[in-house]
């Protein structure tokens, strides 16, 4: 069992996700440079947060066309779990693995704070450690997290139960006031149709140690470790 973290020029959460994955899997993930073109025998892929290629053109647009992303898309097609966090979410939408796009925050401001998320899907490799309706508190830190898609795509996402997390109040109420960035339908995390690719703006990898404020992110990595071991 092995995991890979894709590293782009400008990635800055790659070490954090590596620590989180190693804690859950018991082995350190491969750190794979964006210019590489092979991803041998990998059971789990993480696309980390950061500012790949300086966010030039659009966040994630350059990274989505990196040589290694062809391999990531191919692995995703074979059912390998792929987790994209923050900039990784932007990369996964830009390369077409996930629907929609992350636009500039409605406030135009960089948002860096803890947010509450309601778990909308529990039966995936990523969210098996949570129950539907659970509220978890996880930090966001982004400028382009405003999830948008056309109405037909939104309907298909909702109908297929592809929303993994929504921004909510501490009691689980989904409201405009709890939406940090203007995302459509308060969407904070979305799955592909098969449920093996997840993109999310909040950072579970920053919440795996009490020293860092809590362990609310740990169940995601524990669930992933169990899913790939199964």
């Amino acid at each position: 069992m092995s995991a890979a973290v894709i590293v782009f020029p400008g990635s800055n959460c790659d070490r954090d996700i590596a620590v989180a994955l190693e804690a859950a899997l018991g082995t350190a993930p491969l750190m794979v440079w964006h210019g590489d073109s092979a991803l041998p025998g990998v059971d789990l892929i993480a696309v980390p947060g950061g500012f790949s290629y300086g966010d030039y053109l659009r966040s994630g647009a350059m990274a989505a066309n990196s040589p290694i992303m062809r391999e990531v898309v191919s692995h995703a097609g074979r059912g390998v779990p792929v987790l994209g966090i923050c900039n990784g979410f932007q990369v996964l939408t830009e390369c077409g693995l996930l629907p929609g796009v992350l636009m500039r925050n409605a406030s135009l401001k960089f948002v860096c704070r803890d947010v509450d998320l309601r778990v909308e899907r529990g039966n995936t490799a990523f969210t098996g450690g949570y129950k539907v309706g659970d509220v978890i508190r996880i930090p966001v830190a982004h400028h382009d997290g405003n999830y948008f898609t056309d109405p037909d795509t939104l309907k298909s996402i909702e109908d297929n139960d592809q929303v993994a997390f929504r921004y909510c109040e501490p009691d689980g109420t989904v409201s405009d006031a709890a939406n940090p960035n203007g995302s459509l339908a308060n969407i904070a995390g979305v799955l592909n149709g098969n449920g093996n690719v997840l993109g999310m703006m909040p950072h579970p990898e920053r919440l795996i140690d009490p020293l860092l404020g809590g362990t609310g992110g740990t169940p995601m990595f524990t669930a992933l470790a169990e899913a790939v071991a199964a």
């Binding site: 053109l57 659009r58 647009a61 350059m62 066309n65 939408t93 830009e94 929609g100 796009v101 636009m103 948008f148 898609t149 056309d150 795509t153």
Partner: peptide, 9 residues
């Protein structure tokens, strides 16, 4: 189509 524009938006 491939890079310069994101035709979703």
């Amino acid at each position: 189509e491939k890079l310069l524009a994101n035709t979703v938006i």
